[in-house]
Design a protein around this nucleic acid. Sequence first.
DNA 1: TGGGGGCACCTTTTT
DNA 2: GGTGCCCCCA
Length: 757
Amino acid sequence: MSATPLSQQARAAAPYMEGLNPEQRAAVEALDGPVLVLAGAGTGKTRVLTTRLAHILATGRARPWEILCVTFTNKAAREMKERVGAIIGAAVEGLPWLGTFHAIAAQILRRHAELAGLKSSFTILDTDDQLRLVRQVIQAEGIDEKRWTPRYLAALIDGWKNRGLTPEKLPEDAKWAFADGRGGKLYALYQQRLADLNACDFGDLLLHNITIFQKDAGVLAEYQRKFRYMLVDEYQDTNVAQYLWLRLLAQGTNNLCCVGDDDQSIYGWRGAEVDNILRFERDFPGAQVIRLERNYRSTGHILGAASGLIAANRERLGKTLWTEAEGGEKVQVRGLWDGEAEARFVAQEIESWVSRGRKYRDVAVLVRAAWQMRAFEDRFLMLGLPYKVIGGPRFFERAEIRDAHAYFRLVLSPDDDLAFERVVNTPKRGVGETTVRKLHEAARAAGASLAETARMLVETDEIRGPARAGLKAFLRDIDHWGSLAGSMRHDELAGLVLDESGYTGMWRADKSPQAEGRLDNLKELVRSMGEFDTLEAYLEHVALVSDLDTASDGDEVSLMTLHAAKGLEFPLVFLPGWEETVFPSQRALDDKGAAALEEERRLAYVGLTRARERAMISFTANRMIYGRWQAVIPSRFIDELPPAHAEAKSETGYFSHGGAAGVGEPAAEPYQASYDSPGWRRFQAARAAGRTGDVIDGRAREVSSVAGSGRWKPGDRVFHDKFGYGRVKSAEGSKLTVAFDKAGEKKVIDSFVRETP
DNA sequence: TGGGGGCACCTTTTT
DNA sequence: GGTGCCCCCA
């Protein structure tokens, strides 16, 4: 027997390599120099990433603390830790530099805070605190905050930070984006306020890192030496600041491996630059590019439909995904009357799926915007169909949780002005706006914190009456809790603070229906604190994590936005609301034009590629948006689906028989339309001619959408989803009176469509 | 100071 | 349609 080649021996010695395809193996073994792994949807990206990490460790190329591994979400970081741990069987605690961009940047910043003008105990502000601070800066400058809103400035500052721009580096023209050229000054003032508070916002974590690295060559060199291998997940979603940060660090060993998919870049509106991934080979000369193109997730038709769709994008590197699971079901496209009909349809399909022995948990409904969820929730609740909303209101962003955190922050540092301001009058202590303004002014004059200032003023006659008593009690409480901090378990202390402050009492006295839920949340909060060693550790955690783990493994349908669905997969996926203005979102198109359209298309691509076995797209003719009826036309993305992989079906007859926006005789029998059916062609023709139906909101003051007021004449024949056929009796202003054939009664209705002759 | 009524607003949201 | 916010009044 001939000797086994060495390479094969090495592979045999590495069981974790078992089952990898050649591309995946190449991505794991390309260890020298920059590497870009273009990993299409469902091609085993996480597997490659974790195996690569294990491989680096197993071959002794680096020790655990010499690897930097960055993800975007805590969930991804956690999953990675678990999977690496499972492969190498070692204590994954030994991977201290595996985490999110922000967590790692915070870790580095705490070590060198003084180089950024902070103390290492700095607090990390959330968006709410950030907004309040921006408002204060605007007010202090005497700028009209109606005309120039804090929200807008906060968004600008965020954008600048995402692009790695400190106030000093801000280009002249950028300053003109706010308050007649005062944008730059306000930005600088905001940064000064942050420094005074020993605080930073999310954007600062990376920005300060970059500043430190650029200012102090010694510190940079330390990290460049330390990180012998660098791995980055979801590279297509990095922003300029993250790119700069990575590039600075990578200049040491140059062993940077980025994994991503340009076709799944969907966070451009948050500052992500697809350009980073498109430019990789130029940014990192000598880079290897490895494509993972074998898809293990979806059927051939689903993959074909998704690939056909994404091919319409110009800005992409290009991949050809393939699968051995050829065939399967074509992607189905359904036209429906309105959102209610769509929800009925989806629910019915789910029930029939389950009646065939499948699970609710195998199903996901993916919407473009959160408001679309309501119609589905209503229907699911009515039917008792089990579902869960993923990524709903965030636990740590709820008012009661943030109030509680403010109390905890005060216990640790009474000089935390933002926390002080937040809860000084919650519950009511008679300390109103006037008193707080007085404190602010005095604090500014004295260069002291609000708490310090309050201590002084309550001893004078500046503050009198209930405000004085309230403040005194508040300060006394803070001191009292602070003195307990050393000697008590922090979760017990937390419960005590919430009780003694009267905060839980406030909610107990509240008779509104939400109050009970808020009390539950507070209880859950105190419970979850027990999982941390100290109050400080807990607060650091919540600052960098957006939500509690709500890992429920119940048998429930998942309802979420397309954004929230990235990284997930389901046997059956519903993609409702594929209508122009909804998806692609008109708002996005208005803001950013062609680039936004490509991003919307990528979002559609992400949606489709979540499906393993079956994908169902639907659209409606009438959509209620913000209480307004709108006539809508099918999304252009539907036209871009290759007919070889998608088919249009209709059982309602709305669009298959439709003249305009699906108005017409309901089909006598379930009607199966294909892509070139007469009904589909009529529908397209009506759409091309702009005849999309006239829609009236019976209660609105004016006729909405394409409907022209006064275009209705007595005798017009109309069709309504609920009431069937009818004739217009009178049309005065926006009020229409219609007699329906079936019911034979006159009635003003919410919406209907005029039949096209 | 605080509550109630009127009114503008309204995408997506990894940290 | 629903909600958060502002203003006005008690």
